[in-house]
């Protein structure tokens, strides 16, 4: 081992410089990926403030197309429809998802595994398949529901899973001693739930509701299939416009949708951080309570 200390030192230096090169390359790649994720979105936002009649030719900064969008009554109607269907879907998903998460705390392992299969399948199955199935289902059994009610119902399938995941992650990270204390002090099941459990869960429930709202507010595929004649949500409006070509109006509507969505996501994230639901690692669908448990 003592044969050639100099060359060992030289080897180590080589290893270290190689390590540094790898570090730099990885960091550089990180930057490239973030640019890849965000630059396209930035392009849409910038072009929304383009006063040119042609969508891709930059002329000058201006709000001309914002005015046009606002004066377009069909866009205003689509926005209203989107807002209320998204909110109703969030309501349904929050009630079903929260209840399920609470119930899941106490079921046997096998029941939970069986339930999870449905929950994960609802998240994984391609949207278009659920959309096609829902169209056939409603057209066969309840054609009168096609349109806004069917939009609310189908969106809530995916979102019930989302809310369940988020609330369950929060429940897993929650200290149960407060609930135990409440029960020991003689509060009933309902009293304990209302005054101890629910307040602790509230941020997660609200975050779940916001993410459910976001998903529905942005959805194209499910809505395309189950929307009846004469009702069009905002994304459907943009989608149909895009198929005839790019228009400056689409940039404006897209940017407006982005603003609403981003506000909802960031609020949801803040709520989830504050509630510090550290246990139960979960990824983007569950709102990214990503602190990994070991």
């Amino acid at each position: 081992m003592s044969a050639a200390p100099a060359s060992v030192a030289g080897g180590e230096a080589r290893v270290r410089s190689w390590d540094r090169a790898v570090d730099r390359a990885l960091r550089g790649w990180g930057g490239v990926v973030y640019a890849f994720l965000y630059l396209p979105i930035l392009v849409v936002v910038i072009y929304a403030f383009n006063d040119s009649r042609h969508v891709a030719n930059w002329e000058r900064f201006g709000l001309r197309w914002w005015g046009e969008a606002w004066r377009d009554e069909s866009i205003r109607k689509a926005l209203l429809l989107s807002l209320w269907t998204a909110a109703s879907n969030a309501g349904v998903a929050v009630v079903l998802g929260t209840a399920a998460a609470l119930g899941l705390r106490n079921v046997r392992r096998r029941t939970r595994t069986a339930y999870d299969a449905f929950m994960y399948m609802a998240l994984i199955v391609p949207e278009i398949v659920i959309a096609i199935g829902s169209l056939l289902f409603f057209a066969t059994f309840a054609p009168q529901l096609l349109g806004p009610p069917a939009i609310v119902i189908t969106h809530a399938v995916f979102n019930t899973s989302v809310v369940t995941l988020i609330v369950r992650a929060r429940l897993a990270g929650m200290d149960r001693s407060l609930e135990e204390a409440s029960a020991d002090l003689g509060a009933g099941r309902w009293g304990t739930f209302r005054r101890v459990t629910l307040p602790q869960l509230f941020p997660a429930i609200l975050a779940g509701g916001l993410l459910a709202f976001t998903f529905s507010f942005d959805d194209v595929v499910l809505s395309t299939f189950v929307t009846g004649a004469g009702s069009s949500t905002l994304p459907l409006r943009v989608f149909s416009e895009l198929r005839f070509g790019l228009t400056p109006l689409a940039n404006v509507v897209a940017t407006f949708m982005l603003t609403i969505t981003l506000t909802a996501i960031v609020t949801a994230q803040v709520l989830l951080r504050r509630s510090a639901g550290r246990a139960g690692a979960s990824g983007p669908v569950a709102g990214g309570a990503v602190e990994v448990t070991r």
């Binding site: 609470l102 119930g103 659920i130 119902i153």
Partner: peptide
Amino acid sequence: RGQTVREPRGLILPAWGYYLVFFVAPLVVI
């Protein structure tokens, strides 16, 4: 001391039913 509060297990049923009617049934209709 240390008694745990147990929500009824039946709370998972509404969501489960919802999946059956609006997720599984549409797949069967396909």
